[in-house]
Structure formats: C-alpha cells, structure tokens
C-alpha cells in the first residue's frame, strides 16, 4: 500500500501533505496530555515495532507469504492518536532510510496507513468489543477492527488513485498520473484487501492480541467507553436521520438496475437475468416498507431497521464467538490513552 512518487498529481499530494500538519499537531497534543515526558521512548519503540512487524513474513495459503501493517494492533495497545504518530514515524523512516514509499506521497501514505487504518480499526474494535470484560470477544473484535481498518485504508488509496484521471488529464482525456478511473482503482484495491491482505491482517492481529491477553493482559485491557465512542454513536444517528436525502437522487446506482429498468433502457432483459432475477423477494423492496406511504419516512424507517439488524447480528455474533465470558472488570493501564 506504500504509494511511490509519480502516481499522485500535485493537486492530490500537496493537499494531503498540508492536511496532515494539523492532524500531527493534534495527535502530538493528545499523546502529550496522556503520556507526558515518557512519550519519546514509547513513541520510538512503538514506531520501531510498527516497522518491524511489517518485516515478519507470515505464511499464507499456497506456500506464499505476506506481511501485516499492525496499525490497528498498535491502536489497541497505545490508543489511536499514539498509533497515528508511531505509524507516521515508521512510514517517514521507511521513505527516508529504506526508500520505500515516495517523498511527495508521504501525506497520502500517512493518511491511509497512519490515520484511517488505526482510527477505523480502533473504533470498530471498541464498538464490536462493547464493555465485555473477558478477552474472547475482544480478540474477535480486534480481528474485525483490523480487517475493516486495512480494507478502508485500501479503499481510500483506491479513491486517491481513481481521482487522478479526473484531476489531471490532457485535452483528449489522457490521464497524466495513475491511469485508472475510480471504477477500476477502487474495486482493484478493495478486492485484493478483502480477499487476501484483510484476512491476513485480521488473523495476525487476533493472534497477537490472544497471546498478549494470555501472557500480559494489562497490555490489552481497555478503558471504559469514552467520549469518542459516544461521538461515533451520535455521528451514526445523524447519518441515519440524513438518509431520506437519498430519495432526492434520481435514477438507480450504476450496475444495480432491475429488470424493469433494463427493459426500459435496452428494450429487452437478458434471459439469464430474467430467469434468476425473481428467485428472492426482499422483505422491504427498494427500502420502502409497504405499510408507509410517505417515501421519506419509509426510507428513514428502512435505515433504522437495517442498521438495527446489522448491529444486532454483529452483537449476537460477538456474544457467540466470545463464549459469553464474564470475568471481573479490568483495571485500565496507565500508559494508554483513548
């Protein structure tokens, strides 16, 4: 995922490089508040760990090997802001000492691997692990967080690549930097991380959290839910309330046409599609519950029902996989911060 120089145009890398300065300043301030003067060796060791974990070859199927990034793991051990600084430092050293990753693309690489990956991974971990005191559910939650963290970071990289043909091209439309449009770049990055690197990251993170939980459980203990998690719920509620805006958008998403729309557009429906298209009838077709006439209210109710179903299934799976562990509440360690 290390983007070298040359793939991103100046419109992209200049904005990303500049945007990271306030992020680093906030991260430095947050870490300083929590860790005081001990921050330098702790950050240095965490950055060194972040670097070294990428050098472990992990055996995967077919005799090949891959490597993990470890950003979510460091966020679980030290908190997301500390992970942001540690992984950033590791990326800067990789670029300046080992020539891995571009100089102008440092902003993009830091955004993907040191900001998006640890923050998404950490808050998904917090959300999925809930307040369960045992380790089983947290181990599973760490895997889910690591998986979604790396997949989201990969999609962000795909978006950065995919924007290049739109931002910089010749008069005839030839791209000047990364040549693939969003429709190619995003699926390409997403699919390889969904199928290969995501499961690897999840397996490694779960394995390490499980070993640490057994050998030195203070390292993976968690503070009670704090403000950021409450803000996450508040943001989620705001997004649900905004879903009716989607009704204003005309047409259907590209590639999601139904048989009726295809008939209107093409004049016919492919035989195979017509044959299998009616195999399943959705309970709430087109996000419009049959018992609600107003489309805006119907869309909102569908959003609430769908979200509740996803949260319920995730919670139930977490309970099931954790083996319903119940032990004494943990004592928060002194060195970590939320």
């Amino acid at each position: 995922m290390h983007i070298p120089d040359g793939y991103l145009g100046p419109q992209t890398y200049a904005v990303l490089d500049a945007a990271l300065i306030p992020v680093w300043m906030i991260a430095g301030s947050k870490v300083k508040q929590a860790l005081k003067a001990k921050q330098v060796p702790l950050m240095a060791l965490a950055a060194a760990f972040s670097f070294v974990i990428m050098m472990f070859n992990v055996p995967v199927l077919g005799g090949s090997t891959g490597h993990a990034v470890g950003a979510t793991l460091i966020a679980i051990l030290l908190g997301p802001w500390a992970a942001c600084i540690s992984v950033s430092i590791a990326l800067v050293i990789q670029a300046l000492v080992f020539g891995d990753g571009g100089i102008t693309a440092i902003g993009a690489n830091v955004l993907n691997m040191a900001v998006i990956m640890p923050f998404v991974g950490y808050y998904v971990y917090r959300l999925a692990s809930g307040d369960a005191p045992g380790h089983g559910r947290r181990i599973v939650a760490s895997g889910i967080g690591a998986f979604l963290g790396i997949v989201t970071a990969a999609i962000a990289a795909g978006v950065e690549f995919g924007l290049q043909p739109l931002l910089a091209h010749t008069a005839t439309g030839q791209p000047l930097y990364a040549p693939y449009p969003l429709s190619v770049a995003v699926p390409a990055m997403a699919i390889e991380h969904l199928l290969f690197f995501g499961p690897l990251e999840a397996a490694v993170t779960m394995g390490i959290v499980a070993v640490l939980a057994k050998q030195d459980s203070a390292l993976v203990e968690m503070k009670p839910a704090s403000k950021p998690l409450r803000w996450l719920w508040a943001g989620f509620a705001a997004l649900v309330l905004l879903t009716p805006v989607g009704v204003l958008a005309p047409g259907t998403a590209w590639g999601e046409w139904g048989a009726d729309e295809l008939r209107r557009t093409l004049g016919f429906v492919p035989a195979g599609l017509e044959k299998v298209g009616g195999l399943w009838t959705a309970a709430v077709p087109d996000y419009a519950p049959a018992f609600i006439a107003n489309p805006f209210v119907g869309y909102l109710v569908a959003a609430v029902l769908g979200s509740a179903a996803v949260i319920g299934v995730t919670w139930a799976l977490g309970r099931l996989l954790s083996g319903k562990e119940r032990t004494a509440p943990p004592t928060p360690p002194s060195g970590r911060q939320p």
Binding site: P41, L42, L45, F49, L77, V204, G207, V211, L212, L219
Partner: peptide
C-alpha cells in the same frame, strides 16, 4: 510457522513496551 510467527510478534510487542520504560 504461522503460530510461531504470531507468538514472536507478540513477544516483540511486549519487549517494545518494556524497553520504552527502560529507555525512559
């Protein structure tokens, strides 16, 4: 091999945290 690698990574994580305290 995978089990060994993961266990060693966990060891490095613990050692890193401990070394940070020693360095400080």
């Amino acid at each position: 091999n995978r089990g060994w690698v993961v266990e060693r990574m966990a060891f490095v994580a613990r050692r890193s945290m401990k070394t940070a305290d020693d360095v400080y």
